[in-house]
Amino acid sequence: MHLPRRTLLAASLFTALAATVPAQAADANTVTVMVGGINKIIYLPAKLTEVLGYFKDEGLVVDLQSQPAGVDAENQLIAGAVQGVVGFYDHTIDLQSKGKEIQAIAVLCKVPGEAQMVSTKAAPTFKSMADAKGKTLGVTGLGSSTDFLTRYLAESKGVPSKDYSLLPVGAGNTFIAAIKQDRIEGGMTTEPTIAQLLKTGDAQVMVDLRTEEGTRAALGGLYPAASLYVQNSWAAEHKDLAAKMARAFAKTMQYISTHSAEDIAEKMPKDYYGNDKALYVSALKASLPMFTSDGRMPAGGPETVLKVLAATKPAIKGKNIDLSKTYTNAFLAAK
């Protein structure tokens, strides 16, 4: 039996529409998040949220992508290529000074979780940031948070930026190679790179920003760092999605605060720690105090970050920055 052409067309159209409905429904809960170096322990909550199933529990499909430096991740966000970034909160302030409104909707770290390292070879004549004159210092990328913090640490010891050089060397193996090859005398990096350098003896910790005590001593207060941030306009238009994302990360922060480094390491993919799981656990133990327990912005944190940025960035100094637009706890459960 031959069906009329109109009937066949209608059937084909119905089939096509039926096929697209589930895809559209799925797309409505699909979010792409760029992470400023997914293997860094400061950004561990991103992958941990995925492996614990908390994104799935919220009905989300989250595509985690990685960029070695936070500044590259923020560019992807501004371009609209991704909906969220797991990177440093300080970018929200920096971008507001450039007319872009970005806000952290979940704060993962209350301190930077980084350390200013000095190569063992340079250590005899490079004892503090007051000795930075004439040195070449490594950062993940120019315009990155490691850049902001390095400049502040040097400036606070009376060494202006014109007196030293910053070299973008990334993190992990590329940072370690720069130290070993004497391309840099020191630099700002994170775990597990710090633990690897300490184990081999190639570098030492000069300024420790992995703890509250060290951060307060160096920066004058808590410095909220690793965060999930999005464009303010996107959050306003996708309140349900933003709330689901914030809740998923908050659950992870609660998990981290109630589990050991060993428990957490067991959840992570093997390529995060390679053939030295003990080193990874050691690095994770040193890092656990930096995480928030609930994803909320710590009191006084934004003011410390603004102070640090204003001291080193002419574009921010004297600008009227509205901190209330750089973060929100509104998508998290009320205390």
Rank of each mutant, 00 (worst) to 15 (best):
T7A: 14
L13V: 12
F14S: 13
T15L: 14
L17T: 02
A18G: 10
A19R: 09
Q24H: 15
A25L: 11
T32N: 09
T32F: 07
V33H: 02
G36Y: 10
G37V: 08
I38L: 10
Y43L: 13
L44W: 09
L44Q: 07
K47T: 12
T49M: 07
E50F: 09
L52H: 04
E58Y: 03
V61N: 15
D63Y: 15
L64V: 03
S66I: 10
P68A: 11
A69H: 12
A73C: 10
Q76I: 15
L77V: 08
I78D: 14
A81W: 15
A81I: 15
Q83Y: 10
V86Y: 09
D90M: 13
H91N: 14
D94R: 14
L95S: 13
Q96E: 04
G99L: 06
K100W: 14
E101C: 12
I102L: 11
Q103A: 12
I105D: 03
A106E: 04
C109T: 15
K110R: 07
V111L: 07
G113W: 02
V118S: 06
A122K: 00
P124D: 01
T125W: 12
K127Y: 07
S128V: 00
K135Y: 04
T136S: 06
G138T: 01
D147S: 02
T150L: 06
A154S: 01
K157P: 11
S161P: 13
S165M: 14
S165R: 12
N173K: 14
N173S: 14
I176T: 03
I176F: 08
I176R: 08
I179M: 09
Q181H: 14
Q181V: 13
Q181S: 13
E185P: 14
T189L: 01
T190D: 15
T193V: 07
Q196K: 10
D202S: 06
Q204G: 12
V205N: 05
M206Q: 08
D208K: 00
D208E: 05
L209P: 07
R216H: 09
G221C: 08
Y223S: 07
L228V: 00
Q231F: 11
A235H: 01
D240K: 10
D240A: 11
M245L: 05
R247H: 14
M253A: 06
Y255T: 04
I256A: 02
S257E: 06
T258H: 11
T258G: 11
A261P: 03
E262K: 13
D263K: 01
I264T: 02
E266A: 11
Y273D: 09
G274L: 15
N275R: 15
L279C: 11
K285P: 14
T292I: 06
S293N: 12
S293A: 11
D294I: 03
G295V: 06
R296W: 08
M297Q: 06
P298D: 05
G301W: 07
G301N: 02
T304S: 01
T304Q: 00
V305G: 05
V305F: 04
V308L: 05
T312F: 10
I316C: 09
D322E: 08
L323T: 04
S324E: 08
T326D: 02
T328R: 03
T328M: 09
F331G: 02
L332H: 00
